[in-house]
Design a protein around this nucleic acid. Sequence first.
DNA 1: GTGTTTGTTATCAA
DNA 2: CTTGATAACAAACA
Length: 316
Amino acid sequence: MKHNRSIGARSSGLTYLDAFLPERVLHFFMPELPEVETIRRDLENKILGKKIVSVLVLAKKSVHYSANKFIKVLTSDRIEKINRRGKLLYCSFVKSDLFLLVHLKMTGQLIYRQKEKITAGGHSLGKIDFELPNKFTRVIIRFSDGSELFFNDLRRFGYLKLNTAEEKDKILQKSFGIEPLTSDFKYPAFVKLFEKRKTTIKALLLNQKLIAGIGNIYADETCFCAGVRPDRRVGKINEEEKKKIFKCIESVLKLSIKNRGTTFNSYVDCDGKVGGFVRLLKVYGREGEKCRRCSGVIKKIKAAGRGTHFCLNCQK
DNA sequence: GTGTTTGTTATCAA
DNA sequence: CTTGATAACAAACA
């Protein structure tokens, strides 16, 4: 019998509360659209227009082109704008014509730290969270006001890469489908994705080339919201259900962004607050628990090659 | 040593 | 050609 609610299917034995502890947050972070958008908004407030005074590349694999080129381009330039497409961030510079593409993949983090300030009580605000840099820090970017941006990435799948405008546009074009939460996300275009397809709704939602930004957590939560089993073939999903799925993509993503994403530490203000959407998860990480809508049991299966959660009773 | 966790891509199959 | 399913990647942990 589990008394503590474990987070997701992570077989770590960690409890629900553990995931909120800063040192744990380091290990459990799965950035999908809402998390990346939260980061984008925060960083825009924090680093836009700030002069980069130095760049430290601790893991060459994490940057492209070469580390030398990366350092050379960034140093003494400023980030002009931060954009997002799906789970990818891309930044323009004031001086350079190149673009900085940032993908966090599974375990990447962008953590902003002000230069340590001492409060009246003598507490160091910078130490409320966790030590930086740490052993997963791959790149450090320092700004002229003493603040720093840390790129941490335990598994080193993520990257900070420079591309020409041409290269960037090509990637954006070939890799991403409809962007949710924009005017491109229209029901007729959404329904077209179902045509002539034999895959499952979960695989469709996860496919970045069809819809950009949805990952494993939000695919499951969207299916729950719509009352549709994630392993249903898209051809067997009726019009009413498609409408629900369409609406749910928007509502789930919006609600998560409003709550600063899932298991996301509020690194900017160091006030100990974390992303609030974990509390609002309905199915992800709740295997064996009671459904919050109908009192059925949450089941976990493998679908589209991923851990997949749904209510046995109220998802059809 | 084995089985998990996941975003993306490469690869193979239909 | 298109679509889909799966392996691989990497690191950590039970």
